[in-house]
Computed example of a mutant assay.
Amino acid sequence: MPMATLDPQQVLQRVLLATLPGVLAMFWLYGWGVLINLLLAGGCALLVDTGVNRLRGRRLSDLSSLITATLLALALPPYCPWWLCVAAVAGGLLLGKHLYGSNRNPFNPAMVGYALMLVAFPQPMTHWPAPHGLDLLAGVHQVLGLQGDTPDAWAQATALDALRINKSLTIDELFARSPAFGFFGGNGSEWVNLAFLAGGIVLLRQRVFSWHAPVGMLGSLFVISLLCWNGSGSDSHGSPLFHLLSGATFLGAFFIVTEPVSGPRSPKARLLFGAGVGVLTYLIRMWGGYPDGVAFAVLLMNLAVPALERLAATKQPAVNA
């Protein structure tokens, strides 16, 4: 089915359904905190959209805000404080979407909300739980701040953060000693990334979006990590497989860089856009101040969209025979 024949509401519904494998994988890995995030984010998105549309005298028109909320809920740490999830969704929708009117936002709303929280509240944004989760009651208490003096033993650094701050251990030693590492990437995040890959492949087969932006991001991330990889030494930046299977790589490749409003329109510009996101993600991961760079990479490339469109529209000069 050509992409042009898809109804916008059907597209949004398919994108939401395609996140289900990743949601289930994250629930299996982290427990109830994932579902709590989704409920908080979805409820906040509904309230924000209802309030803004009433002020404008309009009805709720589509599911785009719910997708923004879902992506933020999946990107935020499970069991993060309730106010962090609410502030991320409200900030992303108000500053990243409604501020510019209907479907005119130049920046990805989900990444706007995520970046705002990462800059304003860096400590809770990097407080990821170990892959066992909490039971439902303990999870609700943690989210609401009712845990009292509960120790933080259930939380740990992510694999990307452990690699970024490593100064002495080899890669083999990191994988052997740190619980944050799995077989090839982050412990558990390998399966989460593969689950989002499965959902992304379904969307590609249904022609919800083209292959250009995902392939551009994954391809450039693979190439630059391969060029900068120097084996298993203590100064190694990790293998290409490690970077593909850690952090929010496949969530970013199939559900974030493919956002149609803030992204490019032409296929060539989408390919360049994805490639830029992949390179910037790697640079921020290795030399930036944050363990994962997808959000800032997307926002920086959003700024470059007009230039990418002009570059893609430039015709090659004819060559005389």
Rank of each mutant, 00 (worst) to 15 (best):
L116F: 12
G91K: 12
D49N: 13
A130Y: 01
I67Y: 03
P106F: 15
S102Y: 12
Y79K: 05
T126A: 15
V52S: 02
M125N: 08
G91V: 11
N103I: 00
P122Y: 01
L38C: 04
M111K: 11
C44D: 01
N53P: 00
L38E: 01
A73S: 09
G101C: 04
A138H: 10
N53L: 07
P109E: 09
V52T: 06
L136F: 15
G51W: 10
V112S: 13
W82D: 11
M111L: 15
L60M: 11
V52K: 02
T50H: 11
R104V: 07
A87L: 14
P109A: 08
R104S: 14
G96E: 12
L47I: 14
L134F: 07
A45D: 06
C80R: 02
P81G: 09
C44V: 14
A90Y: 04
V89S: 06
P109H: 09
L38K: 02
G101D: 04
C44N: 01
A88E: 04
G101P: 01
A75W: 01
L71S: 07
L93F: 12
D135F: 09
A75K: 04
A90E: 06
L63I: 00
D49Y: 03
G42T: 13
N53V: 04
N53F: 01
H98M: 05
I67P: 02
V48Y: 05
A115D: 07
L55I: 07
L137Q: 14
I67R: 03
Q123M: 12
L72E: 06
T70N: 15
P124I: 07
L118R: 06
R56Y: 03
F121N: 01
M125V: 08
A69Q: 07
D49H: 11
R54E: 10
C44Y: 00
V112L: 13
F107Y: 15
V48R: 06
Y114S: 09
D135V: 14
L116Q: 08
L95F: 15
T70F: 03
G101M: 04
G57R: 07
L93D: 12
W82I: 10
V48F: 05
L99K: 09
L74F: 01
F107P: 10
L94I: 15
C85Y: 04
T70S: 15
A138T: 12
W82Y: 15
G96W: 08
L39A: 15
A45R: 06
A88D: 05
W83G: 12
A41R: 05
V52R: 06
D62W: 02
A120N: 00
C44F: 02
G57C: 04
T68K: 03
A138G: 00
L39K: 02
L95M: 15
Y114W: 15
A88H: 05
A69T: 09
P122W: 01
V89I: 12
A110W: 07
L38N: 02
H127D: 09
A73H: 03
P109S: 09
F121A: 13
K97Q: 14
T68M: 04
A75Q: 06
P77Q: 03
F107L: 15
L74A: 03
Y100G: 05
G51K: 00
